[in-house]
Design a protein around this nucleic acid. Structure first.
Lengths: 193, 193, 193, 193
DNA sequence: AATGAATGAGCCTTCATTCAT
DNA sequence: CATGAATGAAGGCTCATTCAT
């Protein structure tokens, strides 16, 4: 496993394209190899097995994503602003990479228990960032003291995730990023008066 | 296709058990047939194909679910109460049927585009109920006028869905139903002050 | 097995229609039963198995055919005339029953060794008639003494059979019966000078 | 599809043996693979599907056959001699390959419309050779001017085909090749005086 | 005599992975 | 490092036949 050689990312990028275009179950290893311009066997010099390609795709892309978002959030003072930045970046990141969006919202979910477990491990970094924003908001007394952090995180992530999934299913027909402020308002104040 | 004969429900119930225990891709038709106590071929007297079993499981169970929830919601006067009933029933229904929960939250998502399209068609009835509650709340001036119905529905459904999925992944270690009031509060008032 | 009850012929006739329309391998017992207006199980009160339907179709239709042709041939004086009548009737019979032609020329050949053996048994009656004509021609010194009866019969039957098969494959686009005199001439005099 | 690698012919030859011995419908792909000494999956590196094996067997063998016969025919001066060579070679070719004869005369006919269409396409090359001989005979005034080429070809091919089929059915009990001159005589002069 | 729901054996094909070159 | 030909396990579905009613 040599994960820093150029062919590694070459295969990752090929996988993103192939999976987004063909769907998870129609993305044979040979198809990814062809797209990457390598032989089938070469895949196995860089990945343990097919599942490993998938989880690696997610890990690489999500790693970059979490890194960028952490940077941006640190620049903001208030928890509300941090929340807005989080939503905006999540929306923006996937808006700019519709193929990646198809994979994270649709294709990656077509996996079995074990694979999904590994995906969740990767996701933890992101959920940790969400948790930090919530705790920060509570500390600063911007957020209500009575909320449960886990429940709040599930609301925030669940809402963002559902909105993006709907956007993907509707074939990205509308602008996702401009929804961010409304989503922030909903999450902060709810739908009640 | 004879969908009212006893064997139809017999197979549906067998499928719930087998799929929850083995996962969709490890649920061979022969396994479901065996669990149902019928011959492999009999499955095909009641279902078009393997996929049809899965979608039928969802349709039957979701149909009952939407029916019950609609009844309960009508009894309540305020939109807030209706929302609470919705959350409670959703949680209660899947709490009482953990195997069904595994299927709706995990296995059913491991499906291809076409199947997911069919699942969404079934889900529409439920989302319609959510939309009605939101519109009712806006009309009665219980909910803020500035919310977007679709976005609000996505928050409500996304939040509930994410909470249940986490509960399933954590192997149903905690009581889901008792979380309902806190979830209602979060959805109505958000996490802000 | 009650082969003189009305349902027997009802099923035979249904089989002719279904096989001609759907082809041998797409003619399920249930399809034939439906066409005949009886239950699947009823078929087995009149036939031993599916193969038995096929061979019975051929036996019934060929029996009638041989009977008629024998009658007609007896009316003629010379072997040449008998040969012409034979060709004409063979052509006429299948021209008037294109569905039957499809079955005898195409579908019936898609059978395994055992079935084909049984078909050949039925065919023997017809080939016997051909042999009789040839022997009669030799006796009367109309036909050359040097021909081998079996070889001659194979030429006569092979030629007629090939011509009809081509006609069926070409979707019966031309008049078969009017070819009879030319075929008779060919068989009697060959293509040489 | 790599049709010039050794494994291609290895599988073709295995198919001839297996199909001749077991019949087409009892020739499972796994049986052919075993006979060829390759894995089941290897078959599909060289053939599209099971049907493709059958048609390829016919194409390869018939191709060789037509090539050889065309060469031999060209050496002969008269149409009569060409006809004799044609019959002799047809008989000889299948006499020397009784397994191939079983396939061409029996198993290959157990196919559906589409497959038979493909077989006819291959057969066309052969029928073209027959047509050429007939036309040559007419041109040279060896054959009577009044014959119809198509009808004559149907007589020649139908007769040869029927004779071989009978020989196969009778389990190759007699010498086929020595019948050739008598068949030629019959085709040239008919059975009449 | 007639029904038709139920049976269950049987097989083509795909594709992740290996390994000799 | 890279190749790609070869492997072989695994399962959804059909349909002729049966038999309880």
């Amino acid at each position: 496993m040599k994960r820093n050689k150029p062919k590694y990312m070459q295969i990752i990028d090929a996988a993103v394209i192939v999976i987004a275009e063909n769907g998870f179950h129609q993305s044979q290893v040979s198809k990814i190899a062809k797209q990457a311009g390598v032989a089938d066997g070469t895949i196995y010099l860089y990945f343990h097995n097919k599942e490993d390609i998938l989880i690696s795709v997610f890990r690489e892309k999500m790693g970059m994503f979490v890194h960028k978002i952490t940077e941006e959030i640190e620049k903001k003072e208030t928890a509300s602003e941090k929340l807005l930045v989080l939503i905006e970046h999540h929306f923006k990141n996937l808006s700019e990479n519709p193929k990646l969006a198809i994979i994270t919202q649709l294709e990656l979910r077509q996996s079995n228990k074990e694979l999904r477990q590994k995906i969740n491990d990767v996701l933890k970094d992101y959920l940790f960032v969400v948790d930090e924003v919530i705790k920060y908001g509570i500390e600063r007394n911007e957020f209500t003291q009575i909320v449960d952090v886990r429940l709040t995180r599930q609301m925030i992530f669940g809402t963002i995730d559902e909105i993006i999934t709907n956007w993907v299913i509707n074939e990205q027909k509308y602008d996702l990023v401009e929804l961010a402020p409304a989503v922030q308002r909903l999450l902060l104040n709810g739908c009640g008066k």
